[in-house]
Amino acid sequence: MVKKKAAAHSGTPATALLDARGISYSVHGYTHDPAAVSFGLEAAEALGVAPALVFKTLLVNTGVPGAHALAVGVVPVNRTLDLKAMAHALGVKKVEMADPAVAERRTGYVVGGISPLGQRNPSRTVVDSSALMHETVFISGGRRGLDLGLAPADLMALTGAESAPIAGH
């Protein structure tokens, strides 16, 4: 994949991390529609790619006190996060979706633009195993209207992620 430098206005902690590590990625900006019902499906349509290639970043509350209270699930935008599967992957009894305000504070990003990369306070991350079937996946670049294309192996390495079947229907 050819690395495309982000324009000066599109630099985010996610692109800064990729640049610092010398990871090849592509930058895909589009005009975000505030009326869009699904940020992820909007991105897939704007990028002209199958929704199965675009992944959303969701934070869950594990119920574990301290630094491990939150975890990140990365799933295709046309699927849901299976909370039972996510809990199993994390080795906890159950998880629930994190409060959006807590997710924003923890990551430093706004909902709809949360990237698994460059988070203010990184959390344990699980990427749906379907990502590994693709040469390139697209994730949020750190703001609404900005996606990044990269190899799933690079996403996994940069986040220290585990892979598990965590996507529901």
Rank of each mutant, 00 (worst) to 15 (best):
M1P: 13
K3C: 13
K3Q: 14
K3W: 13
A6P: 14
A8L: 10
H9D: 13
H9T: 09
G11D: 15
T12L: 06
P13Y: 03
A14L: 13
A14P: 13
T15N: 10
T15R: 06
A16K: 12
L17S: 06
L18E: 02
D19E: 15
A20E: 11
R21Q: 14
V27H: 02
V27M: 06
G29S: 15
Y30N: 11
Y30H: 11
T31R: 14
T31F: 15
V37Y: 14
V37F: 14
S38T: 06
S38N: 12
G40D: 02
L41N: 12
E42T: 06
A43V: 10
A43W: 03
A44C: 04
A44H: 04
E45T: 09
V54A: 05
F55V: 02
F55I: 02
K56V: 08
T57G: 00
L59E: 02
N61C: 11
N61S: 15
G63A: 08
G63D: 07
P65D: 13
G66V: 09
A67S: 10
H68D: 15
A69G: 14
V72G: 03
G73E: 01
P76G: 00
N78Q: 06
L81W: 00
A85R: 00
M86S: 00
H88C: 12
A89K: 05
A89L: 05
L90K: 04
A101Q: 09
V102A: 11
A103F: 00
A103V: 00
E104Y: 01
E104H: 01
E104A: 10
R105W: 06
T107R: 09
V110A: 15
G112R: 01
G113C: 09
I114K: 04
S115Q: 01
S115F: 10
P116A: 02
L117F: 02
L117E: 09
L117Y: 03
G118S: 05
Q119C: 12
N121S: 11
N121G: 07
S123W: 00
R124D: 07
R124E: 15
V126T: 10
S129Y: 07
S129F: 09
S129C: 14
S130C: 08
L132I: 11
M133A: 14
H134N: 11
E135V: 14
T136I: 13
V137W: 06
V137P: 11
F138D: 05
F138C: 09
I139C: 04
I139V: 13
S140I: 07
S140V: 09
R143Y: 01
G145K: 01
D147W: 06
G149W: 01
A151I: 11
A151D: 15
P152I: 05
P152D: 08
L155C: 02
M156A: 15
A157I: 11
A157M: 09
L158K: 02
L158W: 04
T159S: 08
G160W: 01
S163M: 10
A164D: 11
P165V: 13
I166R: 00
I166T: 10
G168D: 04
H169L: 14
